[in-house]
Design a protein around this nucleic acid. Structure first.
Length: 759
DNA sequence: AGGGGTAATTCTGGT
DNA sequence: AATTACCCCT
């Protein structure tokens, strides 16, 4: 016990040892937030205030929950596997599997990632003959997710005009389609669980009385639904320990509501509000920069970080003339850091958007410097892996139409658009899945489709009793995927990725306790290793979700959940000491000796899409705050005069954030040029000289460019009809025109390619 | 049916 | 620049 608590500062100690009431901990960056959370759990258990099974700890990322588990098992001599520590989505998945009947789901329900969700919506729009110009699939998806994030079903969404009523209707139809196919999207995992618990009193009371202590990490990132979910799980008697930092709220774009912090304080009658303001991570100049920057935000709960570490080195700022030079400069600096003895893994290169990593990666690669990229294209999102997963999904749930369509003709087996049309007609007519509709298709189409379902059934049957890795291997062979990529000329990488899937399955089985002896499905023998029994209103006894994972879902279902929920780290070369590349978002929670924040330009960081509303810029500022506070000893900021983006060169002003940092903490490596705010033409000459022929989003220069077209000219296009040129950008081989085609809308056409006629 | 080539669109962040 | 949608030919 003494061990647990020693070395905590007074605020941390106070937080860890709070009585069993709801508490809000405002934890600044680097203030030992995770330490407080884990020590709190350990202390509660060690002092006998709660048993391990009475603790529910919720995080947002898998990384965070793994870290928490690891730290806890180091502190406590108990097996942490049975503890309820996980992400909102992971925990909901578990609850829904255990209570799938009451939740109205098949046991093998599958989880759609956002790619899958979007294609499911596209499919729906097509089937319903919806004008996808008026109702783009992406907008429909935003609408649905936005509603679900607020905890609203279609019939609960207010719509005051026909346009919105259509969205509501589509939301409803989408839910029906998902239900028919036995699939749920991310938001649905939470909403379903919420509805299950609010509807089912015995279940609710069981979990409410069980979870005496609920702890929430990154509370500022909760959305309305997650907040309601927490309220429901807590009931009247659980103590909710919420840890968060309003200054690090960077997920408003997916529904996070910082207002939940004050709502929590009010509704949970929080008497214990503790601020952790002592920072143990960053040197003074870095921390001062962060504090000064974030003070520019208006809506804050108020908090100022302090450190005992002394000023340390100044924050270094570098202006470069192009993104290529930026990469080169980073490499020079990183090299000298490494020469001075720095570990590569202690150097992070951060950027606002994933697209920026390419140039840096290229430079690192050609300089032979090992690096590791986080995020971006994840393993389970690669096309070939998605195909393999779709076969597995189909084997586990025949009615998953998305999976069916993805692989029914991949590798090609003579099933074309016409056959599929017949099949979809039949499915719609009887209201059944594509798989189930196969027998209704006659003729040659029926035969080829029948062969496909036979294949799936054979794979299912042959692998039924086999361990997961063998199941995967057999699927890869039987499906013909391996064969297909063997004959493709660029297929070597893909083959490797597919073989990797067998390894992933092996690893998964051993890590998650799906040993060969584990029962494949919930059966009579399962109750022996299950958790408590719950008696439902109708007298039926069911087992709660505390049971071993292997008793509430099959290895295959679990593996498929894992693939959707974790998407897999971007396969990193293991063991190698490497530079760390990632977006600012994915850097949250991490720390490094040296940090580069790159691309600090208006339009990029802060991002242009966020500049419409003040709240958007404030979120960007918080993002910058997160980025700065990742650095322990040394911080570099860079911006470039020109940058290749979307295939054309852009000229950006330096980020406004430079004007929000304290001068005395900064050291300009390149001369600081006074730029009047928003005065584009005051930019240094150099920007022009570098790329004389590049066009850019600039007005004056475009008139000089002779693309053969001029703004205001009337043109005709084969497909879009008549239109008028609204703007021309770029020049030479890059010339593109923005043309208003009236009812066909605004189009951006490449003038060197598009066939336009003068009218 | 399906491959290959061309035209058009995308492009913030991530469970 | 890179991916996706579309068209045309075999």
């Amino acid at each position: 016990m003494q061990n647990l608590l020693h070395n905590l500062n007074p605020e941390q100690l106070a937080a860890v040892t709070l009585p069993a009431q709801s508490a809000l901990i405002l934890a600044g960056a680097g203030s030992g937030k995770t330490r407080v959370l884990t020590t709190r759990i350990a202390w509660l258990i060690q002092t006998g205030q709660v048993s391990p099974s009475g603790v529910l700890a919720v995080t947002f990322t898998n990384k965070a929950s793994k870290e928490m588990l690891a730290r806890l098992s180091a502190m406590l001599p108990i097996n942490t596997r049975g503890m309820w520590i996980g992400t909102f989505h992971g925990l909901c998945n578990r609850l829904l599997r255990a209570h799938h009947k009451d939740a109205g789901l098949p046991q093998t329900f599958q989880i759609l990632d956002s790619q899958d969700q979007l294609s499911a919506i596209k499919r729906l729009l097509k089937a319903m003959n919806v004008d996808d110009e008026k109702y783009p699939a992406r907008n429909v998806m935003y609408f649905i997710n936005g509603a679900k994030d607020q905890g609203l079903r279609a019939h609960e969404v207010e719509a005051n005009d026909d346009y919105n009523r259509k969205f509501v209707e589509l939301y409803d139809l989408y839910d029906q389609q998902c239900q028919r196919e036995g699939v749920v999207d991310f938001a649905e995992l939470l909403l379903r669980t919420y509805e299950l618990m609010s509807r089912n009193q015995p279940l609710r009371e069981h979990y409410q009385s069980r979870f005496k202590h609920i702890l929430v990490d990154e509370f500022q990132d909760t959305n309305d639904l997650q907040y309601k979910w927490l309220k429901l799980m807590a009931g009247q008697h659980s103590a909710v320990f919420a840890v968060g930092d309003d200054d690090q709220s960077i997920y408003a774009f997916r529904g996070a509501n910082v207002g939940n912090m004050s709502a929590f304080e009010r509704e949970f009658k929080v008497e214990n509000l503790i601020k952790l303001e002592q920072n143990y991570r960053s040197h003074g100049h870095i921390l001062d920069s962060a504090n000064t920057l974030i003070a520019n935000n208006s809506k804050r709960l108020g908090k100022n970080l302090r450190t005992d570490a002394g000023h340390g080195e100044p924050v270094r700022i570098q202006e470069v003339s192009s993104d290529l030079q930026e990469a080169q400069w980073i490499i020079e600096e990183a090299k000298s850091l490494i020469n001075e003895g720095a570990l590569r893994s202690e150097i992070a290169i951060l950027y606002r958007s994933n697209a920026q990593s390419r140039v840096i990666e290229h430079a690192l690669f050609s300089n032979g410097i090992p690096y590791k990229v986080y995020g971006g294209q994840r393993y389970f999102e690669r096309a070939e892996v998605k195909h393999a997963i779709a076969y597995l999904q189909l084997m586990d749930n025949l009615h998953n139409d998305s999976a069916f369509l993805r692989v029914v003709n991949f590798p090609t087996r003579g099933i074309g658009a016409r056959s599929l049309e017949q099949l979809q007609d039949a499915a719609r007519q009887y209201g059944i899945s594509l798989y189930a509709a196969v027998p209704f298709v006659t003729g040659k189409a029926g035969a080829v489709l029948g062969a496909f379902t036979k294949l799936i059934e054979a794979a299912r049957f042959e692998t039924q009793q086999l361990p997961l890795p063998e199941m995967v291997q057999i699927m890869l062979d039987m499906s013909g995927l391996m064969e297909h990529y063997r004959t493709e000329k660029e297929g070597a990488d893909r083959i490797e990725n597919l073989e990797q899937l067998v390894n992933a399955a092996t690893l998964f089985v051993s890590e998650e306790g799906f040993g060969a002896d584990a029962p494949a499905l919930l059966g009579p023998q399962a109750s022996a290793m299950a958790g408590a029994a719950i008696t439902l209103a109708d007298g039926v006894e069911i087992i709660d979700a505390d049971a071993q994972l292997s008793t509430i879902m099959s290895p295959l279902s679990a593996f498929l959940s894992h693939a959707s929920l974790e998407a897999g780290d971007n396969q990193a070369k293991t063991g190698q000491d490497a530079l760390q590349l990632m977006t600012v978002h994915s850097s949250k929670g991490l720390e490094f000796d040296a940090v580069f924040i790159t691309g600090l330009e208006e339009g990029l960081f802060p991002h242009e899409n966020s500049q419409q509303e003040e709240s958007g810029v404030e979120e960007e500022r918080r993002l910058m705050y997160v980025a700065i506070t990742r650095a322990k000893k040394r911080l570099y900021l860079s911006f470039s005069q020109t940058r290749m983006l979307h295939g054309q060169t852009r000229y950006n002003m330096r980020s406004r954030f430079f004007d929000e940092l304290p001068d005395e903490a900064l050291k300009w490596l390149s001369p600081k040029i006074q730029v009047q705010k928003n005065d584009w033409f005051a930019r240094p000459k150099a920007a022009w000289v570098d790329e004389p022929q590049a066009g850019a989003n600039n007005i004056a220069k475009n008139f000089k460019r002779d693309s053969g077209w001029r703004i205001g000219e009337n043109v005709a296009h084969q497909k879009f009809g008549e239109g008028v040129i609204v703007n021309i950008e770029g020049g030479g081989d890059n010339a593109r025109a923005q043309i208003n085609f009236g009812k066909h809308g605004m189009k951006l056409l490449d003038l060197t390619v598009a066939k336009l006629e003068k009218v």
